[in-house]
Design a binder for these strands. Structure first.
Length: 489
RNA sequence: GGCGGCGUAGCCAAGCGGCUAAGGCAGCGGUCUGCAAAACCGUUAUUCAUCGGUUCAAAUCCGAUCGCCGCCUCCA
């Protein structure tokens, strides 16, 4: 079975058929490096990390390019505000980005080219476009003549006429058509500049991706990705540039991930609901974020809320708890005992890999794939709970094998990569750090309560339990004494 | 105004022509417990925004209506 992917170009799921058999080439628009990355950037990075990882799992060779925009208006403005250079600023945030990616457990792409390191390629492509009559110089700027590129609008499904009707086009006297966009911008005083045939200036935003994708992946390649907001104008313009220059199909499949909202509002600094990856990871495990992100299909909108994250944390704990408990089973197994697992359950468990792949092959349906995993966890828990003291060998084998499979598959989307018992311990440790009561006091109170319980002084025992609960400490009386944990939320 | 998307249980979310409408969270019932908590099990939509239509068959296709959202300006 082959992978099918939703293609923005024709709004259809299409089979992935690499141009070069067995080798997938993918380009994803990365960040503009002028600030810390937010949860929306995280989603995009996670989604393409998942896609690349899954394709590799299928045995495909993947060349994955993700660029940095390290020169543009926002960077120039921010650098001026902070009295620093554009280079220093972009370097700072590229570094921060790498840190964030590492914390999220995102694998490095094959290459991460920067716009400023590809000026010769950029200038070369602009010259090519001018030679073909697709671009023109106006003053110190160079513009792309969108009317000259017949398919303009093919990706975003709009025609130039429709767009002209819209009132939101910036007016620029130098443009022949208001929709024309800058390939090269003549620099104003104080701005970083590069020499060019049109005088000192800098590249427009879109041309860098055309130039760099060509350099690293060739004139035609398999997948181009990015956030939904990049469809127009960025990706539309890339098509105009690359296809205009080469005369060949630029990209076969366009993949766009949906947006992240916060409490149903678009993230924006003015609304004060701007959440950076750092903010988030200060509070939650990276894997909890992944579970949250991948619980929704990548093309659908994703609404962030504390409650949603808490759900993800709870879900992750559930998965790890199941694995940890299976790992703790020490029984060696009775070859003649009657198995607990039913035929139906065994079938479900054994078809997990197949069903997981089926979901993933269908436009990377991680939500469904995760659903399959949770379903198996439920079955494993049932079997585990029903196990007698001397359990059947077949049951133990089944549990252990399934456990391995679950970790393998979940690992493909970056989940359950930690040792289950370590994960659970770590959760506890982290929580401990935030307590307003010391570990010693907790344990002393537990001892006091134990004494009371021995004397069957239930009133006192319950009072102590209530006291600890007021500090958010929950007690769990078990066969091996009393354990405690911090109440979530 | 133009283009596109969405509306499935209390919440989140798969399913996109035909097996019992996945799964998670919360709730409830149970096991356990001195009582709890935790853990685990079980359970929770005759119905998929509304109204029509196509079909032997629709949450899934078509049309209309209502309600959300995104893009059209920098944006993942």
């Amino acid at each position: 079975m082959t992978v099918t992917i939703f293609n923005t170009l024709n709004s259809r799921k299409v089979p992935l058929e690499p141009i070069e058999p067995g080798h997938v080439k993918i380009y994803v628009c990365g960040i503009t490096a002028y600030d810390y990355c937010h949860i929306g950037h995280a989603r995009s990075a996670l989604v393409f990390d998942m896609i690349v990882g899954y394709l590799q799992y299928l045995g495909l060779n993947v060349t994955y390019i993700r660029n940095f925009t390290d020169i543009d208006d926002k960077i120039i403005n921010r650098a001026q505000e902070q009295n620093t250079s554009t280079i220093a600023l972009s370097e700072q945030f590229i570094h921060a980005f790498h840190e964030d990616m590492a914390h999220l457990g995102i694998a490095s792409p094959t290459a991460e080219p920067k716009a400023t390191e590809h000026l010769p390629e950029i200038i070369g492509m602009i010259q090519e476009l001018m030679a073909k009559g697709l671009a023109y110089q106006a003053g110190s700027d160079v513009f792309y003549a969108v009317e000259k590129f017949q398919p303009y609008g093919i990706l975003s499904g709009r025609s130039l006429n429709e767009m002209k009707a819209g009132a939101r086009i910036s007016i620029n006297e130098n443009k022949r058509n208001p929709m024309d966009f800058a390939l090269w911008k003549g620099s104003k005083p104080g701005e970083p500049t590069w020499e060019s045939p049109w005088g000192p200036g800098r590249p427009g935003w879109h041309i860098e991706c055309s130039a760099m994708s060509k350099k690293y992946l060739g004139e035609s390649f398999d997948i181009h990705g990015g956030g939904k907001d990049l469809v127009f104008p960025h990706h539309e313009n890339e098509i105009a540039q690359s296809q205009g220059a080469s005369g060949k199909t630029f990209v076969n499949i366009w993949v766009h991930n949906g947006f992240v909202t916060i409490n149903d509002e678009k993230m924006s600094k003015s609304l004060g609901n701007f959440l950076t990856i750092r903010d988030l990871l200060a509070q939650y495990q990276p894997e909890a974020l992944r579970l949250f992100v991948f619980s929704t299909h990548y093309r659908n909108p994703l609404d962030y809320s504390e409650a949603a994250m808490q759900d993800a944390v709870t879900g992750l704990d559930r998965l790890y708890t199941c694995l940890a408990e299976i790992a703790q089973i020490t029984a060696s197994g009775n070859p003649t005992a009657k198995p607990e697992a039913t035929v139906k359950e065994i079938e479900k468990i054994e078809s997990l890999t197949e069903r997981f792949q089926e979901a993933m092959n269908n436009d990377f349906n991680t939500a469904q794939a995760l659903g399959h995993i949770f379903e198996i966890v439920k079955i494993l828990n049932r079997i585990k709970q029903a196990l007698p003291s001397n359990p059947a060998t077949t049951d133990l084998d089944l549990l252990r094998k399934a456990s391995t499979t679950i970790r393998e598959l979940a690992g493909l989307i970056g989940l359950l990569r930690q040792e289950p018992s370590l994960y659970l311990n770590c959760q506890q440790q982290k929580i401990l750090a935030g307590l307003d009561i010391s570990k010693e006091s907790i344990e002393q109170l537990i001892q006091d309560r134990l004494t009371a319980r021995r004397q069957k002084d239930w009133a006192r025992a319950d009072a102590i339990r209530g006291q600890l609960l007021s500090h958010n400490i929950e007690l769990k009386d078990g066969a091996n004494g009393t354990a405690w944990s911090v109440k979530p939320g």
